[in-house]
Each structure stands twice: as C-alpha cells, then as structure tokens.
C-alpha cells in the first residue's frame, strides 16, 4: 500500500503496476477455475472411459513430445548460430523464424499442405514409403513442429545472447574446443532460458488445433477431440474434455520442468 509520503510525492507507480498486473492475472486464472469448478469431477472422470478421449490424450502427449524434441534438436543449434552472428543476414533469418508465429495456425496448416499434402511430390513419396504425412501421427507432429518450434529458437536465442561471449573466449583460450565450450559453459548458463523455450513449445504443441486439423484430423489430438465433442454434442460435452486437456497439459509441464535440470551440466 502506498505510504502517505509517497502519495504526496506523486503517483505510486509500483502500486499501480501491482494492481494492473493483478487484474490481468485474475483474467487468466478466473476462467480456468470457473471451467474446472463448473464440471463435477465424476463427469470428468467418466470421460476417461471413452476410448476416443483416452486415445486423443495419448496422441497429444506423444506427438507434443516428439515435435518438441525435433524442435529442440534443430532449434537450439539454430538459436546459437543466430545469437553468435550479427548483421542484416541474422535479422532476416530471425524474421523467418518468427514467420510461423505470425501466421494464423489454419494458414500454417494450409501452407504445409502445399508441401506435404497428399497430392504433392513429397506427400506422395512419403505415402508410398508407408509414412503418410497427412491424416497420420506424422502429420500431427509436422503441424505441431511448424507452429511450436519457433518458441524454442526465439527464446533460446535470447538466452544465448545473454551469455557473455568473453566467457567463450576465456574457455577456448584455456585450451577447450568450441564444442566443449558450448557444452560446459554456454549451454549451462543459458539453460534456464533454453528450458523456458522448450516448455513454451511443448505447451503450444499440446494446444495446437488450427494447423493440426488441416493436416491430420485423425488421429485426433485433444484439441481436435474437444472440437469434435463440441460440434457433435455441444458445449456441455466439450467442457469435461477441456478439463482433461488442462490437467494433462499442467502435469506435463510440471514434469518437463522437474526433469529439466541441464542434462549436460
């Protein structure tokens, strides 16, 4: 609370910031709590008997894990390269990374269809090889990777930029190779930021709907399952499934962060 002396000197900006921030937080939390409160636990639990809901849970968690892993494998090195170079080329490349973030997800799905869709060269070749890229688990992963992996690149890039490159210079002048330097100096210092990017990407993948429904209506992910429940039986049928998605997402993120101690440290 603002003391009288502070008030006398002018607006209490810290208090104002607290109030404004608290209002926004309420706006985040209230709808979630109200959704959970509106659904009796029995109703939610009864949905776990529905094979299509359980299947969607499995697909969502598995596909999000795979797409996050792919995003990390390719995105962390890209983030490092972008963080350690400067100039117009780097700015342009960073803009390309952000591109999937600014596209509406449905449009992302459409642009992917033009490359991996059933009537495209890549799509046909993959289908012939027994790995169809649409209406398949691979399709879900492709959609999620496109939409979610930029979070890894953008966040990890900022984290790498926060690591003073003099530390890398010091490490190398101590006789350590570039690879050792990245593994033992850069990554451990940047790790909280990198992990935040991975977490964001996983959360985004779990919630992915627009691109996924274009690429892979089947196998259904949780968001698609919610959409199906809603469009066939109305909101009352969709709400319990939404609560399940919420719980699965929160639990996954907690697990991810608990496991997220730097594997290289």
């Amino acid at each position: 609370m603002a003391s009288r002396a502070e008030t006398a000197r002018g607006p209490d900006w810290l208090a104002a910031a607290t109030v404004l921030g608290a209002l926004l937080l309420c706006y985040y939390v209230l709808p979630v709590l109200s959704l959970v409160a509106s659904q009796p636990p029995e109703t939610v639990i009864s949905r776990l008997d529905d094979p299509s809901v359980v299947g969607a849970m499995g697909t969502s968690v598995a596909a999000s894990t795979v797409s996050t892993a792919i995003g990390a494998t390719f995105g962390i090195p890209l983030a490092y390269r972008l963080a350690r170079s400067e100039g117009r080329r780097e700015t342009l490349l960073t803009a390309l990374v952000v591109l999937p973030l600014v596209l509406p997800p449905v449009v992302s799905g459409m642009v992917l269809l033009t490359v991996v869709g059933p009537n495209t060269l890549i799509g046909e070749l993959a289908a012939t090889a027994g790995l169809p890229l649409t209406r398949s688990f691979a399709g879900v992963v492709l959609a999620q990777t496109f939409v979610a992996s930029p979070f890894i690149v953008v966040t990890a890039k900022a984290a790498f930029e926060g690591v003073d490159d003099q530390l890398e210079a010091a490490s190398r002048s101590l006789g350590k190779s570039r690879a050792t330097t990245i593994r033992r100096v850069t990554l451990p210092i940047a790790w909280p930021g990198v992990l935040a990017g991975v977490t964001l990407a996983f959360a985004r993948a779990m919630g992915e709907f627009g691109a996924t429904i274009m690429l892979a209506y089947y196998p259904r992910t949780m968001p698609v399952q919610i959409w199906v429940s809603f469009s066939t039986a109305g909101l009352s049928e969709a709400f319990p499934v939404a609560v399940i998605l919420l719980v699965v997402a929160v639990v996954s993120l907690v697990v991810l962060n608990a496991l997220g101690t730097n594997p290289l440290d």
Partner: peptide, 12 residues
C-alpha cells in the same frame, strides 16, 4: 591456429 591450440593464456 584456433585459440584452444595456441597455449596463450588470457586474463580478462
């Protein structure tokens, strides 16, 4: 020669 193979120690 890359820095790691120069055997030049630097104190920053």
């Amino acid at each position: 020669v890359p820095p790691e193979d120069r055997r030049t120690g630097v104190v920053f």
